[in-house]
Structures are given as structure tokens and as C-alpha cells.
């Protein structure tokens, strides 16, 4: 009867040695190849440090002006620009400027990597049903696996620091980029594709002249979601050494400093709003200039 109350599991000894041998194998791997992998990520580290240095060392009014100009270029909406500036002023006034710059920097680099890798993967998925079938479960795992779990192998390989933090953020935030690129391309009106075929367009020409431009609003929605996910990951990533607004939040949790926590929390919300409004307004603008995406 005990078979019903107690699940028939493999015995403790086997399970322990299984876990042990996998961990040992992985440790060996990271001992042997850790250095190579680290040097592989050197360009990313360079990008990350440079952008962080730039954001911190440039006088704040210049940074604020740059951000305001980007907000204007993206949204063409003065209300959005004003609220962006207000949010940044408040953040600076409450002495969170430097941490905010660090967070913006890692979010920017993570989003950049997610775009650089996500869009081509999304395109491949749209072009090949087979690849789509392979990728979908992988993306499901990436999105549902608790983020702490894949922090472990990343830390084992690369130790604590900015790069492993960045990798974790990218893994966590790339799925919507891939999915929405795939979806955007698949939703392009077939009649337009047929017209391109009838004029003798090659696959590359169809991609460049038609599919990517028409999928752009959907791809923009993917970029928006990717940025939001990246921001939400910075607190968790601060546990493995990512600096920025996440770290004070972590300290606040550990020491029960409510005010510190809530201020930095609000700062994260603030930049999330900035990213979100600007990228959404931009997405909406390209959509309008396209007319309807699927005018069937």
C-alpha cells in the first residue's frame, strides 16, 4: 500500500550520485573552458563598461538633454518628453542618478543583445516551420524557468559580476523579441508577398523590402516587452553582482529599510515608464505611417 502514499522514486543514493556527477562534470567544464568563455564575452564587457562610463561621467544636464531628444525623436509628443524630464529630475533630486545610469546602461546593452540575436532567430523561425517547432518549447522553458536556476550555471562558468548578470538578463528578456519577430513576419499579408513574387523578388528582397518593414510595429512591441523584462530582472541580477538600482533594493530587503527600497523601486518604475511610453509612441507612429498592417 505504501506505493500509493509514497511516490516510487529512485533511491536517495543514486539520486545523490547523479546530481554529484552532473555538477562535477559542469565544474570541470567551467574550470577548463571558463577562461575561453570569458574572453569570448570581452567585447560585451567592453560595451557595457563604455556605456556605463559614458552615462556616469557625462554631466547630467547633457545626458538629460540626450534622453529628451531621443524621447522627442521617438514619440514626437511634447507631453511624453516633459514627463520623461520630470521623472529624471525627481530621480536625480533623490540622489539616485548614478545607480539609475548604471541600470539604464545594463538595460540598454541587454536590449541591444536581445535585438541583435532575437531578430535573426525570429526571422529563421518565420522562414522554417521545423525551426519554429524546435524553438517554441525552448522559449517556453526560457520564460517559465525561475530565473534563479539559470543564474547558477552562469555563475559557475563566469563567477559573480556584470557579464553573468547581463547574460541572465538577456536570456530572461529575449523570448518576446524572438516570438514577436516570428509572429510579425508570419502575419504579413500574403497578397503583398504574392505581388512581390510576381515581380521576381528573391527571398532576401522580400525580407528587406516587405517582411521586415511590415513586421516592424510587431517587432517594436517585442523590443518594448524585452526592455520591460530586462528592467524587471535587474533586481534579481543584482544578487550576482550587477550594480545599479537593484542593489539598494537588495540591501533594503536584507535590512528592512523600507524607504530605501521604495525610493529605488519607484526609480525602476520611473525608467520603465520612460522606456515604455517612448517605444510605444514610436511603434504607434510607424504603424500609422504604414496604414493598416493587414489591409485584406
Amino acid at each position: 500500500m505504501s506505493i500509493l502514499t509514497e511516490f516510487p522514486s529512485i533511491d536517495t543514493e543514486t539520486l545523490r550520485s547523479l546530481k554529484k556527477s552532473i555538477d562535477a562534470g559542469f565544474k570541470n567544464f567551467s574550470r577548463n573552458y571558463g577562461d575561453n568563455i570569458e574572453s569570448f564575452f570581452e567585447p560585451v564587457r567592453f560595451l557595457l563598461i563604455e556605456s556605463e562610463q559614458f552615462l556616469i561621467n557625462t554631466p547630467w544636464p547633457i545626458i538629460m538633454a540626450i534622453i529628451a531628444i531621443i524621447a522627442w525623436a521617438g514619440s514626437k509628443n511634447i507631453k511624453i518628453v516633459i514627463s520623461v524630464v520630470m521623472i529624471l529630475l525627481l530621480i536625480g533630486y533623490f540622489d539616485m542618478w548614478e545607480n539609475t545610469m548604471k541600470t539604464i546602461s545594463i538595460t540598454f546593452v541587454a536590449a541591444l543583445l536581445a535585438i541583435v540575436f532575437g531578430i535573426p532567430i525570429g526571422i529563421l523561425m518565420a522562414k522554417s516551420n521545423f525551426f519554429q517547432r524546435v524553438m517554441n518549447p525552448v522559449l517556453d522553458v526560457m520564460q517559465t524557468m525561475p530565473s534563479f536556476v539559470y543564474l547558477i550555471p552562469v555563475v559557475m562558468l563566469l563567477g559573480i559580476g556584470k557579464i553573468p548578470g547581463l547574460i541572465a538578463v538577456v536570456i530572461y528578456s529575449i523570448p518576446p523579441m524572438i516570438r514577436l519577430t516570428n509572429l510579425g513576419i508570419r502575419l504579413v499579408n500574403q497578397a503583398v508577398i504574392e505581388a512581390a513574387d510576381s515581380y521576381g523578388a528573391s527571398n532576401t528582397q522580400k525580407l528587406i523590402y516587405i517582411q521586415i518593414p511590415l513586421a516592424l510595429p510587431t517587432i517594436m512591441a517585442g523590443i518594448n516587452q524585452t526592455i520591460m523584462l530586462a528592467l524587471s530582472m535587474v533586481v534579481i541580477a543584482s544578487m550576482i553582482g550587477v550594480t545599479g538600482l537593484g542593489q539598494p533594493v537588495l540591501t533594503a530587503i536584507q535590512n528592512q529599510y523600507f524607504t530605501l527600497g521604495i525610493f529605488n523601486g519607484f526609480a525602476i518604475v520611473g525608467i520603465a515608464i520612460v522606456f515604455d511610453r517612448v517605444s510605444q509612441a514610436y511603434g504607434k507612429r510607424i504603424q500609422e505611417s504604414h496604414g493598416t498592417i493587414n489591409d485584406k
Partner: peptide
């Protein structure tokens, strides 16, 4: 593909214009 480029042009019932392009750039597609 080459044969289509050299021999055919097509006009469609539902126009099938490229919605993101202007009249000019649709025409030179």
C-alpha cells in the same frame, strides 16, 4: 525569378500595394 523580372508585370484585384511605401516607391518596386 529572372524570367518573371524580364517578362511579367501583374495587377491584382485587391491592389496588393505595399502599405508602408509611398505612391512613388510603390511604383518603382
Amino acid at each position: 525569378i529572372n524570367f518573371r523580372r524580364e517578362n511579367f508585370a501583374m495587377v491584382f484585384q485587391k491592389f496588393a500595394l505595399l502599405p508602408h511605401r509611398t505612391v512613388l516607391s510603390n511604383t518603382y518596386f
